[in-house]
Design a protein around this nucleic acid. Structure first.
Length: 285
DNA sequence: CGCCCTGTTGGGGA
DNA sequence: ATCCCCAACAGGGC
């Protein structure tokens, strides 16, 4: 489950190995990867171009190619990018060959990962504008910014956090983690928090992602191992919210429920349930 | 052994 | 605005 810290960690490892190299060939083994673009169209647009930078926006990789061609990749749940993967590495979807005889493989057991193409700076902007909001690691995620975006919204705060159009890069684990750190219940209507809570939540999201990044940078050291990406990430820096386990802060049993359509873990002592709830009246719990 | 449920992100439709 | 379902598949429970 590559979340933002994993994506950023992979980017930092790969960037120095890719930047300045030329992309000689793109072998697309699974046409679904770049749909609706054909593998031929993807290849002809990118092959032969120099890689100027490897950037990131939210959970997207942005391979900045010369002449304003941008290859956008998303790992979704199980995708990985492996530098010089061992022969026979399973679930290989794409192979990018470089002019220095090295290669990068896009591997993805569940085949959800995607590759897209933006030609020109305007096309790049137009791709991200309707999809991604504030970059949380760029220092722009503040209490007032969060409060302003959430104003008037009745949906649960967790669904709001998971919506990439508001804050780019918050996944299920980090949403739970940040809400726990901020003492905010996942089902609180997004617009109903106190100003102080928006500030705490903004800080908690930033801190949780940064902690993940620190942990990833420390443990993710071998990109050539097929399981390198997944094996290196243990999420030990997280509060480790698990149903039936005691809360690390107060010892209350962690409960699981659905919020924003996702499995959600919370301590309902540290994160008090909202008094009023949406939808039909139901029995407690 | 095999069936069923769950988790995971983004997109699309109701 | 908000909710629900889908894509594809591993892995666990029963």
């Amino acid at each position: 489950m590559p979340e933002l810290p994993e994506v950023e960690t992979i980017r930092r490892h790969l960037a120095p190995r890719l930047e300045g190299r030329r992309l000689t060939t793109i072998a697309v083994h699974d046409p679904r990867w770049c749909r609706p673009l054909t593998p031929d169209a993807m290849a002809s647009a990118c092959e032969g171009r120099r890689i100027e930078r490897l950037d990131r926006r939210g959970k997207y990789f942005v391979v900045v190619l010369e002449d304003e061609a941008f290859l956008l990749m998303h790992l979704r749940m199980t995708g990985t990018l492996l530098y010089d993967a061992a022969a026979g590495t399973p679930h290989r979807r794409v192979t990018f060959s470089l002019d220095d005889a090295h290669e990068v493989a896009f591997c993805d057991p569940r085949r959800f990962g995607t590759g897209e193409l933006a030609l020109g700076a305007e096309a790049l902007r137009a791709f991200f504008a309707p999809r991604l909001g504030i970059e949380p690691l760029a220092g722009a995620l503040t209490g007032p910014a969060l409060r302003e975006m959430a104003r008037g919204r009745r949906g649960p705060i967790k669904a709001f956090l998971l919506d990439q159009r508001h804050v780019a890069g918050v996944g299920n684990i980090y949403a739970d983690e940040a809400l726990h750190r901020a003492g905010v219940h996942p089902l609180r209507p997004a617009g109903s928090l106190r100003p102080r809570q928006y500030a705490m939540l903004a800080q908690a999201v930033t801190a949780a992602l940064q902690a993940g990044l620190d942990a990833g940078g420390a443990t993710l050291d071998d990109f050539r191992h097929p399981d390198g990406v997944r094996g290196g990430f243990q999420h030990e820096f997280l509060v480790h919210l698990r149903r039936g386990q005691p809360c690390g802060t107060c010892g209350t049993t962690i409960v699981k429920f659905v919020a924003g359509g996702r499995g959600t873990y919370a301590c309902e002592r540290c994160q008090p349930r909202p008094r009023v709830r949406r939808g039909p009246i139901t029995a407690g719990r």
